[in-house]
Design a protein around this nucleic acid. Sequence first.
DNA 1: CATAGTCGTGGGAACGTTCCCACAAAATTT
DNA 2: AAATTTTGTGGGAACGTTCCCACGACTATG
Lengths: 325, 325
Amino acid sequence: MSVSIKDVARAAGVSTSTVSRALGKGPVSAEVLRRVESAVAATGYRPNLAARQLRSQRSMAVGLIVADIRNPFFTQLSRAVEDAAYAAGMRVLLCNTDEDPVREAMYLELMAEERVSGLIMTPTRHLSPAVLARVGRPVVLVDRAMPETDFDSIVLDNARASAELVDHLVASGRRRIAGLFGSTSATGMERRAEVEAALERHGLPARSALSLPSFDAGHAALAELLEREMPDALILSNGLFVRAALKLCHERRIPIPGRLAIAGFDDEVWTDLVDPGITVIRQPVEEFGREAMQTLLARIGAAKMRPRRIVLAGELIVRGSTAPV
Amino acid sequence: MSVSIKDVARAAGVSTSTVSRALGKGPVSAEVLRRVESAVAATGYRPNLAARQLRSQRSMAVGLIVADIRNPFFTQLSRAVEDAAYAAGMRVLLCNTDEDPVREAMYLELMAEERVSGLIMTPTRHLSPAVLARVGRPVVLVDRAMPETDFDSIVLDNARASAELVDHLVASGRRRIAGLFGSTSATGMERRAEVEAALERHGLPARSALSLPSFDAGHAALAELLEREMPDALILSNGLFVRAALKLCHERRIPIPGRLAIAGFDDEVWTDLVDPGITVIRQPVEEFGREAMQTLLARIGAAKMRPRRIVLAGELIVRGSTAPV
DNA sequence: CATAGTCGTGGGAACGTTCCCACAAAATTT
DNA sequence: AAATTTTGTGGGAACGTTCCCACGACTATG
């Protein structure tokens, strides 16, 4: 049926070991290399990756576990990770947890069975470091760190970004600043803490709420938040919430920035297509992905490398949604 | 190092064959099943998928080859495919071709090496059926068919959708209708042909252009098209082009729908957040993904099944961008 | 009661690689 | 010129499964 290394060996008149070396980069004579190459071409041989993996005990695949690929942040991230992976001769196994710790655990199990050589993930807040360590593979966390652990991580400078947003809103004359933060991630918590700290520095009260990071949940939470706090500005901890906020304002005919300023994280493609444009923190997502893959490869190569924590700066992009009234 | 089926066998006091049967669904006594299960739990055994694949010669993985996962159409598609795949106990290998036939060929090669049990893809116009057949795995085409071939496919009813767009624009009083279509896909070609046919039925001239399906290329092509044809309505064959058109109108301060009506394919999340909202054909993308996976599984199960061509209807969503002047 | 059929089990050969080892021939050193 | 190292090659045992076959112990059939 399928052509194996044996067939190539026979066609080239050498042993299978020699073919293996010729294809890998072992020492072979120029003459033999030529013969093997033409034998490969003649037979149409394709290495069997399963056999290779079984024998060599390493898989050339990395797992990428994110919340939901439909969130543009994760889309971009995954694309960057994939490009870097394929460039390094690795394949990517993508998993969507939908922020569900049960699915997350299930996929970790699956990745272990696949014997992936490493894992890049955005963990939920409920994942215990012990469970993660038990997977027994190198792990790089992206976007969401696990404080007090030794996992490599690539995260945004949330303190700085949060402060920039608050400072900007205050400068544009807002005083009743409310925020909505994702409840499932360490990052949501961190942004909330940092926003509240920044507000406190301005002597302003904290008005924040948490929500599951979905459009509908965010929309509902925002409706309640508007009711309760009557804010004049909104800080949204992710692109989904920004979209939900905008939608809600449309529905309720709330003028932006007249009665409410809107600002948040993630510079999705439409933020400059709506009117007014939305003020956001642009995250260097591609860099997240690239650095994550690079860090993972380094970690795979050297397990003893000391934990690497990369913190990248976001960029405040000011648009009409936060213009002074 | 790693615990294998042998360790489980020893712990359960049975042979490896019996363990294998107990884990698969071979005939085993209740007593033995119990012993094996507790041995698995005790040893922390996890099956080695590479060994399993090598021995059984099938891989439990399917390839998904799309142009660019960052395009929301493909994002949604991939998510639907992945859900269906994991539900069926399969894994997904995602590849981005960027519409580049060379990368496409490379990934086809890679998928063959991976011995994926099937392939779902949106082929470029330049992929020859012969090359695709040579991969030697079941293939299901999504969104883009290959006419005159026997591959299974799931596509939109482009004729109907194109006619609906044209009819709608004509009904709203537009006469100088221009269109921009993706140059790399059979679907772009098909939509162009169908739009032109519909225009002809109304006795209107065809004014169409082609472009690489990227934001920048689309933007440039549109700038030229506006210059050349002075249209009063624009039909865009994908979401990227719709976005480019909107951006261009913003830059040029072209009033929508006043001076130009805009309509196109793909109902991206922001189309009802901008003002005016954009009239679009909503494609049943999730259904594309589900049906594709289902068809692929059927095909894997029965190679002799006769070619299945599924054509799904889109839904015209009328918004302000095409309101009569 | 003998015979034929089920059922559960174990033995062992694959699957297609890589990698360790041994060995001969060539190149280098002493 | 002998001794040593380097170089290229082949043989064959793994890697962890599954699957075919054979075998014994039952159960149903005549």
